[in-house]
C-alpha cells in the first residue's frame, strides 16, 4: 500500500451526498457557519471577569414574600444576624409566627411581644452556648413591610432590645448615593 498525502477527511465516509452538499454549501447557502474562536474566548473571559467582580459570597438574604421593603440611600452592607419579618398581619422569625401585628395595632399602645421575646432570648442562649467566652453582638435585622405602623415598629424594636438585641438594623432596598 502506497503512502499518500491525506486529503480532507470530514464526511468522506458519509454516504449521504445530499447532506454533504447541503452542509458544505454546494447546494446553495451553506448551513455551517464559521465562529471566530478568538472573539468567543474574549467574550467568555470578559463575562467571567464581570461575574466574578459582582459575585457576593454572603449570598442572598431571604425576604418574606409578604414584605415590601422601603428604599433608603444612606445604608450599610447587610450582616449575618437573626431576621424578624413583620408583615401586615404577623411577626415571623425563621418561618414561625412570633406575634400578631393586628393585635398591636388595635391596642394602639407600645407593648412587649412575648412570643418574639421568648424566641429571641432562646436564640441568644443558643448563640452563647455555641460561642462560649465571646461577647454577644446583639444584632437583629428587622424586615418590615412599608405599610406597618410605627406602634408595631416601636414595639418590636423595644422587645428586641429587652431580649438582648440592642443593635437593631432595618432592612431596606439600597438606593444609589446621590452627590452631596
Amino acid at each position: 500500500m502506497t503512502i499518500h498525502q491525506p486529503g480532507r477527511r470530514l464526511m468522506h465516509a458519509v454516504q449521504l451526498k445530499f447532506v454533504h452538499k447541503k452542509v458544505t454549501g454546494h447546494g446553495g447557502r451553506p448551513l455551517a457557519a464559521g465562529l471566530s474562536l478568538t472573539s468567543m474566548i474574549d467574550f467568555l473571559v470578559v463575562t467571567v471577569v464581570f461575574l466574578l467582580m459582582t459575585f457576593s459570597a454572603s449570598g442572598e438574604q431571604p425576604i418574606n414574600k409578604n414584605v415590601r421593603l422601603p428604599a433608603a440611600e444612606n445604608t450599610l452592607d447587610m450582616i449575618d444576624a437573626p431576621i424578624v419579618a413583620i408583615t401586615g398581619s404577623a411577626i415571623i422569625v425563621d418561618g414561625n409566627a412570633a406575634g400578631n401585628t393586628r393585635a398591636i395595632e388595635d391596642s394602639k399602645r407600645l407593648q412587649r411581644v412575648d412570643e418574639l421575646f421568648n424566641i429571641l432570648k432562646g436564640k441568644r442562649e443558643v448563640w452563647k452556648q455555641l460561642h462560649p467566652g465571646k461577647d454577644f453582638p446583639g444584632v437583629v435585622v428587622l424586615q418590615i413591610d412599608q405599610e406597618v405602623t410605627a406602634v408595631v415598629v416601636k414595639s418590636v424594636f423595644q422587645t428586641s432590645a429587652f431580649a438582648g438585641y440592642p443593635n437593631v438594623s432595618f432592612m431596606v432596598n439600597g438606593l444609589p448615593k446621590t452627590n452631596r
Partner: peptide, 20 residues
C-alpha cells in the same frame, strides 16, 4: 459562567442601623 450566573445576587439589600 453558568455557576456565577446561577449564584448571582441581583437584588442588593441594605440596612439602616438604629441603637436602642
Amino acid at each position: 459562567i453558568s455557576f456565577l450566573l446561577i449564584t448571582a445576587v441581583w437584588s442588593h439589600m441594605a440596612r439602616i442601623n438604629a441603637d436602642a
